[in-house]
Amino acid sequence: MPGFELMNAHDFKINTVPGTTPGTLAAIAAGITNVEPSPNEELSQDKYLDGDGYGETDVIGAQIVLAFTGHRKYGDVAQDFIFSKMLELGASRRTNFEWTEPGGGKFAGPCTIANISGPSGAAGAKGEISFEIHFNGKPTYTPPVVTP
């Protein structure tokens, strides 16, 4: 489709050996049916006497969060790593993450795996899962290389 990028052209990778550089990156793709990025913005909304009762907004904080949903695929390196963290707390949920856009732009940085849920669902259905990747701090963004 000219002008529209398909979500399956995005590349999501998680470091399955935390604390190592560059680490061992595994694709988050198998069994994943949906991803919802969110800036999780914190807003300051204020009304001033000179605004005639109308307010103004400033974005004063943010955290990039990606919410993934899909089906549990046992034996998939990324999913097995993520679900191995379900009962863990604190630093053991931290690693690194990369998100490469279809055009080549890349977000990368430290992250926390949060809200791991599933598998669940009906007896005759695939196990439904969900989890979130929360970038810790502002990720590094590398713009795509433009070729003339």
Rank of each mutant, 00 (worst) to 15 (best):
F131M: 02
F4L: 14
F135S: 02
S120D: 14
S130K: 07
S38V: 05
A114Q: 11
W99H: 11
T57Q: 07
M86D: 08
T112S: 14
T95Q: 03
L87A: 12
E41D: 13
H134M: 04
T33R: 00
A108I: 10
S92Y: 07
G127N: 00
F4N: 11
S38P: 08
W99K: 06
P110T: 12
P139K: 04
N15M: 05
G53I: 10
Y48V: 08
Y141R: 08
P148Q: 12
L43S: 03
G70V: 06
V35Q: 09
S130Q: 09
Q79H: 04
F12V: 09
A62M: 11
D80A: 03
P144A: 12
A29I: 11
D58V: 10
P39F: 05
T147I: 14
L66S: 02
A67F: 02
V77Q: 15
P39S: 11
P2C: 09
N136P: 00
P18K: 01
P143Q: 08
F97G: 04
D80M: 03
M1N: 14
A30F: 07
A78L: 05
D80P: 10
I82Y: 06
T147S: 10
H71M: 01
D76Y: 06
P102K: 03
H10D: 11
T147R: 11
E101M: 12
G19I: 07
I133N: 03
V65D: 05
N8T: 12
A67E: 12
L49F: 13
T95G: 04
T16A: 03
S120I: 01
E128V: 01
K13N: 13
